[in-house]
Simulated assay, not measured.
Amino acid sequence: MKVLIGSPGSASGLTLRITQCAFAASSIALMVSASDFSSYTAFCGAREILDTSDLQYLELDKLALDLIVAALIFTIPHLWEWGKLVSYLIASMGLQLLWSFGLACLDIYALRRKRDLQNPVLVSLFVVGDWVTAMLSLAAACSSAGVIVLYARDLDFCNPRIPCRQYEISIIFAFITWLLIAMSSHVMFWILASF
């Protein structure tokens, strides 16, 4: 079987997983280091942010505002709560970080023991895990990008209290993480198809 770049148990696969971990951790670190991030990041405190006083110039009545808030809150997968809500982007990047770190450890084990990780059962597990985390990462990055565009351009919320630039860089790192996981999921799919 031909070894593809980024295949499990190879040095290129290990490099791909480590860069996924690095960009996911960077995205989390930038988002968490922002002042009062849990109040202003994607879908945290949506009721406080989307209030009638903020959207008066759009001439929305109370029912339309409630529909917008309900659509934001209930169409997005619900968030975990530890005292305050944690944003969907951080939850998704945290899952991506754990998944990539676990597979990087497996790659290190395979490289040190000279084991072959390319069997149908393992590769099918890698395909499913990569595709699921890729979809979650893309959804989180896109929804967070939509929220930051709403804040920065439409509602003009960016000020010294809300560090939009820091959020934007975190979202860029999330998109890079998604690109890297999409590459590895593509490689895993072709390895699975070659069995």
Score class of each variant (00 low, 15 high):
Met31Cys: 13
Arg113Trp: 08
Met135Glu: 06
Leu98Asp: 05
Ile191Leu: 15
Gly6Pro: 03
Val86Phe: 08
Tyr109Asn: 10
Leu103Val: 02
Ile68Phe: 09
Ala91Thr: 13
Ser35Asp: 13
Ser143Asn: 01
Leu55Tyr: 01
Ile49His: 04
Cys44Gln: 05
Trp80Met: 12
Ile176Arg: 08
Thr75Cys: 01
Glu59Ala: 04
Ala22Lys: 04
Val128Tyr: 08
Ala22Gly: 05
Cys44Met: 06
Ala70Asn: 10
Leu58Gly: 02
Ser124Cys: 07
Ser185Ala: 13
Asp54Ala: 14
Val187Glu: 05
Trp82Val: 11
Asp61Glu: 15
Ser137Tyr: 03
Leu30Ile: 01
Ser144Glu: 09
His186Val: 00
Gly129Ile: 06
Leu89Pro: 03
Pro120Gln: 06
Ala145Thr: 08
Asp61Cys: 10
Cys142Tyr: 07
Glu59Trp: 00
Ser137Lys: 01
Cys105Gln: 05
Val32Thr: 00
Gly9Leu: 05
Glu168Thr: 10
Phe74Met: 07
Leu16Cys: 07
Asp156Cys: 08
Phe173Pro: 02
Tyr109His: 12
Val149Ala: 12
Thr19Trp: 11
Val3Gly: 01
Ile90Lys: 07
Ala193Gln: 15
Pro160Glu: 06
Asp66Thr: 01
His78Leu: 09
Cys164Tyr: 07
Leu60Gln: 03
Arg153Glu: 14
Leu85Ala: 14
Val69Ala: 07
Arg113Leu: 14
Leu72Pro: 00
Ala24Lys: 02
Leu89Asp: 12
Cys158Met: 09
Thr41Gln: 13
Leu125Gly: 07
Cys158Ile: 13
Leu60Tyr: 02
Val86Tyr: 05
Leu67Met: 13
Val127Trp: 04
Asp130Arg: 06
Leu97Gln: 04
Gly45Pro: 01
Asp51Met: 01
Ile5Asn: 09
Ser92Thr: 15
Asp130Leu: 03
Ser185Lys: 01
Thr133Met: 15
Ser53Pro: 00
Leu179Gln: 07
Thr41Glu: 13
Ala193Gly: 01
Leu192Ser: 15
Ala141Met: 07
Ser143Arg: 03
Arg17Ile: 04
Leu72Met: 15
